[in-house]
């Protein structure tokens, strides 16, 4: 039994330590906030906010208060606001301890691709290139394979890169992999997933 989206998010939340300032990407990474428990975590939203709160109650949405995914959110007692240049100053300057991001592809040397498919899908990198270049630790959370069943954990990325050699840890529905010198090291396997299952589902080198 592999992990579902929420279980992946729960596993990713274990990566966070008390006192951390963290940036969560769009998609499964956003769910990580539901599993931080008692840990004192401050969420950064790169459009200019530290101390991001939960979604507002219906009828209390504020058009001036959104997250980087353009969703309405709320503030907390600790919240601060700032402009985009200041926001990316703290990202580029290494003040944000970790970023948890989604991905289209990750390679065994830590290359990350998550912003475009040439000729097909053009989203833009948003703040992802700045995040992976600047934050202390980059954790990718994604499905292990694409809709066609092909591995998204590759020897080399085929899509345009978001960053080169930037990923530290990969959390997928099958388990947890660390990017090390000569390949990927299995840190954890989802319940019912064997080492052989992981190797079979992974194009990249498992060491």
């Amino acid at each position: 039994m592999a992990w579902d989206r929420n279980q992946m998010a729960e596993r990713a939340a274990q990566e966070l330590e008390d006192g951390m300032y963290v940036n969560l990407g769009i998609g499964i990474p956003t769910l990580v906030a539901n599993y931080v428990g008692d840990k004192d975590i401050t969420l950064q939203s790169e459009n200019g906010m530290l101390g991001m709160g939960p979604f507002p109650y219906e009828g209390e949405e504020d058009p001036d208060l959104i997250n980087a995914g353009k969703q309405t959110i709320t503030e907390l007692a600790r919240t601060s606001y700032f402009d985009s240049a200041t926001s990316f100053g703290m990202i580029r300057g290494g003040k944000i301890a970790a970023a948890i991001l989604g991905a289209m592809e990750v390679s065994e040397n830590g290359d990350l691709a998550n912003w475009m498919i040439p000729g097909k899908l053009v989203k833009g990198m948003g703040g992802a290139m700045d995040l992976v270049a600047g934050v202390g630790r980059v954790i990718v959370v994604m499905d292990h394979t694409n809709k066609a069943g092909e591995s998204k954990v590759l020897k080399e990325c085929t899509l345009p890169l978001t960053g080169k050699g930037v990923v530290d840890r990969i959390i997928t529905n099958l388990g947890v992999l660390d990017v090390e010198h000569k390949g990927l090291h299995i840190v954890d396997l989802a319940p019912g997933v064997t080492r052989e299952d992981m190797i079979a589902a992974t194009e990249a080198t498992i060491i």
Partner: peptide, 22 residues
């Protein structure tokens, strides 16, 4: 418009764009 070649697009990482303005 971008994929049809009707619009030029210079992609800038978000923080780079903010810092270029600043």
């Amino acid at each position: 418009q971008y994929l049809a070649g009707e619009l030029e697009l210079e992609f800038n990482p978000q923080g780079t764009l903010a810092e270029r303005m600043r």
